[in-house]
Computed example of a mutant assay.
Amino acid sequence: MRYDEDHKSKTHKKIVKMASRQIRGKGLAGPAIPTLMKASGLTHGGFYKHFASRNNLIVEAVEESFRELTDTFLKAATKSDSPEGWRGMVKAYLSLERCDKIDTGCPIAALAPEIARAESSIKSRSVLAIIKFRQDILPFMPGNNASEKEENFFIIMSSMAGAVIIARTIPDPKVREGILSSVQNFLLDRFSSF
């Protein structure tokens, strides 16, 4: 059977996208290659036509998860009812729906401790994905200059990711929503002067 020229590229992207969701949901060590391939509707045998190793797929999946988070933030910033795009990002991120969907949620909240302990090949490329994410988001952050925007980026992202991590440990949805809402209100109020 003959495939289109871009069939391999499309299949590769499909595997990476599904792996991105699998690792956010189950962790870096969680899903085995057969599970990752099955989630993409493919067999284990085709894996090495696309990736040299499981680590290569993991790195690409982490990068994909940061691209998805960047896209979510940029959409929220441009749809925001405020000229301050960061406010839309905060509101979109700190929603109960996003908190409850670990597999499509923030890679920082889902994977940061594991990335910190990962092999250097995974860690180094994951750090580059985080740096790119920060660069793409910085223009929307509150602040009067680049230094303030960078400082506020770290404060806002750390607060939001921490809120999601804590909220995910709580079984009661009303309590989870209260945690997210409290942090959202704090951030929106704290940075309103910019």
Rank of each mutant, 00 (worst) to 15 (best):
M1Y: 09
Y3G: 01
Y3P: 05
Y3R: 14
H7T: 11
K10A: 00
K10S: 00
T11R: 05
K14H: 10
K14L: 10
V16W: 03
V16G: 00
V16Q: 03
V16C: 03
I23E: 06
G25V: 02
G27D: 08
P31A: 12
A32Q: 11
P34M: 08
P34H: 07
L36C: 05
M37V: 02
M37S: 01
K38D: 12
S40F: 00
T43C: 07
H44F: 04
H44P: 08
G46N: 09
G46V: 10
K49E: 14
F51Q: 05
S53Y: 03
S53T: 14
R54H: 04
N56Y: 11
L57G: 03
L57Y: 12
I58T: 15
E60Y: 06
E60I: 06
V62N: 07
V62R: 03
E63M: 04
E64K: 08
S65D: 05
T70R: 08
D71A: 12
T72Q: 08
T78R: 13
S80E: 10
D81T: 15
S82T: 15
S82D: 10
P83S: 14
E84G: 05
E84M: 10
G85M: 09
W86T: 11
W86K: 10
G88F: 04
G88Q: 07
G88I: 09
A92N: 12
L94K: 12
L94H: 10
R98H: 13
C99Y: 05
C99F: 01
T104P: 08
C106P: 06
A109G: 09
A112K: 13
P113D: 09
E114P: 02
I115T: 13
A116M: 12
A116F: 07
A116S: 15
R117K: 15
R117M: 15
A118D: 15
S124C: 02
A129S: 05
I131R: 12
F133W: 03
Q135P: 07
D136I: 04
P139R: 11
F140R: 07
M141W: 02
M141Q: 05
G143I: 08
N145C: 09
K149D: 00
E151Y: 07
S158E: 01
S159V: 06
G162E: 05
I166F: 05
I166E: 06
R168Y: 00
T169A: 09
I170P: 04
P171N: 04
L180M: 10
S181Y: 10
S182M: 14
F186S: 13
F186M: 11
L187F: 00
F191L: 06
